[in-house]
C-alpha cells in the first residue's frame, strides 16, 4: 500500500492503494468515475481510455504509480449533459451509439486525435480509432460525429433515405 497523488480532471486526489493497481480501478472504485470502463483489461478494446498529458492511454494496463505527476483527463473531465464538450455534443447530435459501453473510448480517442489533427479525413479517423472496438457497430455514426465536431461536413457514408412504400400510396 502506498499514498499515490493523482491529478485528475483538474483536481489533486490522493489515494491509498497498491501502486501496481491499474489506474482504471482507482478511477472507478476510489474516485468513483464512470467514464472509463472495463472491457478487456488487456489493452485491446479501448473502453478504459483516458488522456494522460493529452495522449490517449489504456488505463486497464497502466499501473497507477505511472500516472503520478501526470495530468489525467477522463470522459467526465470533458463535459456533462448540462454542459457538453463540443465533441460530446456532436456525438449526441449524431445519435452515435447503441449500447454506449464503448463510447468512452470513442470520445477520448477522438479527443486525442482532434487535438493533434483538427480536420481529419474519414480515413485518418478510421486509422486513429482502428484499435477501439465497438461490438454494436456504431462505427459510421462515430466517424460522422467526429467529422461534425471537427467542423467538416459529415461524409456521405450513409445516405439512408427513407422511402415510402408503394402500398402507402
Amino acid at each position: 500500500m502506498a499514498q499515490i497523488s493523482l491529478h485528475v480532471n483538474g483536481k489533486n486526489r490522493v489515494v491509498n492503494t497498491d501502486p501496481g493497481t491499474p489506474l482504471l480501478y482507482v478511477l472507478r472504485d476510489d474516485l468513483e468515475l464512470h467514464g472509463p470502463r472495463f472491457g478487456c483489461g488487456l489493452g485491446q478494446c479501448g473502453a478504459c481510455t483516458v488522456l494522460m498529458d493529452g495522449n490517449a492511454v489504456r488505463s486497464c494496463i497502466l499501473p497507477v504509480s505511472a500516472a503520478q505527476k501526470r495530468s489525467i483527463t477522463t470522459l467526465e473531465g470533458l463535459g456533462s449533459v448540462a454542459r457538453p464538450h463540443p465533441l460530446q455534443a456532436a456525438f449526441i447530435e449524431e445519435q452515435a451509439a447503441q449500447c454506449g459501453y464503448c463510447m468512452n473510448g470513442m470520445v477520448m480517442g477522438a479527443k486525442a486525435l482532434l487535438d493533434k489533427n483538427p480536420h481529419p479525413t474519414p480515413a485518418e479517423i478510421k486509422h486513429a480509432l482502428n484499435n477501439y472496438i465497438c461490438r454494436c457497430g456504431s462505427h459510421l455514426r462515430v466517424i460522422r460525429a467526429i467529422q461534425r465536431a471537427s467542423g467538416s461536413q459529415p461524409g456521405k457514408l450513409i445516405t439512408g433515405a427513407v422511402s415510402t412504400s408503394s402500398s402507402r400510396g
Binding site: 459510421l140 450513409i158 445516405t159 433515405a161
Partner: peptide, 17 residues
Amino acid sequence: VVSYEQIPDVEIVLIDR
C-alpha cells in the same frame, strides 16, 4: 471483430408501412 478500417459504407432504404 470488425474494426474501423474494415467497415463498409452503408446505404439504407427504409420501407414504411
